[in-house]
Design a protein around this nucleic acid. Structure first.
Lengths: 225, 225, 225, 225
DNA sequence: CATGAATGAGGCTTCATTCAT
DNA sequence: GATGAATGAAGCCTCATTCAT
């Protein structure tokens, strides 16, 4: 399994790039430094020109890889959810008990992210910040339906369905498994943001707060058979 | 009470505007048409120039009222939450039973919005769309802490605390009242978005889906005394 | 009639500009210097940025007047033909004899242009060079039909019809008055270009060559009654 | 004569290309698809990158053949006039009567073009459209004199002289044979454009209109001996 | 108070071209 | 000889904002 993991590549819809950034050193630099830069200055202020300066290259080179900065954001977001799915698989694969499995899934979703040495060019901690602070901008746009038709959000939707299935494995009678999965995945991003910036309305003072909240939630909500 | 309602004004932090838009016809036109325009073209493409054209005025006139389009978004978002708080008060004021009260609150938060004839210049339905599609951009920015220090998000936070208090009135032992309130308020926006655009991951096919989801949630989660 | 001439304004389709360049000093500077600059460096190399530098202003100011450089070219071309029509009227107004009238028209069309002191901000000689060297680019484009539908070529077409009518006044039996008018108007631009640049295939070594050619042409071609 | 025709190659000034496009399959693809592409999108929007995509090759390959897109246009224009000269020769070679000869020449110049099966890689109909719509841009530039000095317009000028000679064979006393030849050759391109796009100023509603116009013209203008 | 005009700066994008293989 | 990758420079255009009336 080690070999398998070493040759690992998170797959992302190929409509999102003009040239696969994983296929060249420059591409990897674009991804790696792009993540750091968005984390640093925010997506609004992020431009390909600034990224070009950052990697000692010209913005035009970046345009060979991505049509525009929106697609870049969708790309790294999609990569993130693909990577999360992979984390989820690794963490839950050997667990038989559905309740334990779902609790582990919540941990994967809601616990603070750690660096993944398997993907050297990507700083997963910075990327996680972007997911919290910027990723909703990848779909809160007027072209969301078009992008969705192109399959740009498949990684995310796949993950939701995955968690939803785990919920159903715990309680087949529960009526809203998809909504609950969405609540856990998106909601935990939101709770992390709130605890960071709006401390007066949080009861999750530390990194693991959201995890407790969702574990308690499912414990009350779902009736295991 | 009629008089009270007629003289009604939703209060918004005065740091958000340079000149109170409620104080003149032009100001109301800016708010009213601004909401319609953002709903139509999205916040990214929205500019004061386009709004100026819409209201047959010059963009410089709008700068008399708002420093920039970000503050405009924060303003209308803040107005919305103030208005929601007011709806909440009207709807729950006379209810004694805490459980009933919280359920009514969920309805106010999660049910589709209807036009409010009390505020003639504002189309609450369009504004609600903006809240769903754009409002998170009002705080997902690098200056969120600065804006927060200025008190720009007080309406929203006040509402969260209000719902949180209602939750506590139902179950004093529950550990995460604020997180649950946040989950209901923000989560329902998200569920509405998902059911509109990502139909494959929703189990709320109609407008009232989210309401049912949250009512079920609190019924299971909170132990009434 | 003097007063009339002093208040003169050549009219150009208002779809061609965003703001009437005749309505401000800056607008006139844009027209005047734009003509000089295109004459100097050619339409391909002409940009609003360079024109901005020329008039100590920013290109963005020019964009307030014209949507793009193509529309600028169509504008000055249209102005030119409106002006030519006006020259034609002045020169032929009092002539009764149709043959004399048509010969005078040929002179107006084919003789070298002189400065017109009535339009101080426009250098008609430079503009005439542009008409010879660049004006065909105003219609040799993929959007010619669209532009034509907007009425951008009305001045030119009106002039052709005017000359065509003069031809018919000379010889009602002639079958191709419009083609002949086109031949005179466009052809003389071409002959001027050829005599300037392709001397081996011209027999019009001087400025008045084309005039003689067309006068001879109509003398042979048309049968006066 | 069959052999002669089979080995036929229209000669074009070798300064126009870096590597003879007739010397390789790729070269012929560049010419053939380049013509189709310019016809489709217009010369302004035509780029070597787009042509590269069209022929499944890289733009850099095209740079091996042509220095820039301007030279490409001059090349195909030059090829066209060489080909026209050849058509003229074929059509008039056996005609003795100068008047008949000139009339045939007019037909070759002004009648709609038909596919020539002798040059498989070139679509002469598309090329003729380019000559009508784009070819003037090959000489209406600031470097026309330089290009002319390099001999890039020899094919065209040779054709003009050829027709001019035919005119003189009909009427030695006529003063403007070159101008008349130019008028016929260039004017017919212009009349075709006008009848296609400016229908209100044409009296040549069909493809053969210009032919009639010029035949009538020379019949009146030239005195056969 | 409201507005029309003007503008500097910068965004996004493409072009034409070179370099290395 | 053909090609893929990379890039500097520049194009076009719009934004957010200020100034003068």
């Amino acid at each position: 399994m080690d070999d398998l993991l070493n040759n690992l590549k998170i797959s992302v819809s190929d409509g999102l790039y003009l040239k696969d950034p994983e296929s060249s050193d420059l591409g990897k630099k674009i991804i790696g430094n792009g993540i750091m830069l968005i984390d640093k200055i925010g997506f609004e202020d992020f431009t390909f020109r600034k990224l070009g300066a950052e990697i000692q290259s010209n913005e035009s080179s970046i345009y060979r890889y991505f049509e525009n900065k929106h697609n870049f954001l969708v790309y790294i977001t999609s990569w993130f959810w693909g990577w999360k799915e992979f984390q989820l698989l690794l963490a839950t694969n050997n667990i038989k008990d559905p309740v334990k499995k779902l609790n582990t899934a919540i941990e994967v979703m809601a616990m603070p992210v750690k660096e993944d040495i398997r993907f050297k060019h990507i700083n997963e901690v910075a990327l996680n910040n972007i997911i919290i602070n910027e990723s909703s901008k990848s779909y809160l746009t007027k072209k969301v339906d078009e992008d969705n038709d192109h399959g740009y959000f498949l990684s995310y939707k796949h993950l939701v369905k995955h968690v939803s299935a785990m919920i159903q494995d715990v309680d087949r009678t529960y009526t809203f498994p998809l909504s609950l999965a969405t609540t856990i995945i998106n909601g935990s991003l939101n709770l992390h943001f709130v605890s960071e910036h709006f401390s007066s309305i949080t009861d999750c003072k530390d990194g693991i707060g959201p995890t407790m909240f969702y574990k308690n939630l499912i414990a009350q909500l779902l009736k295991s058979p």
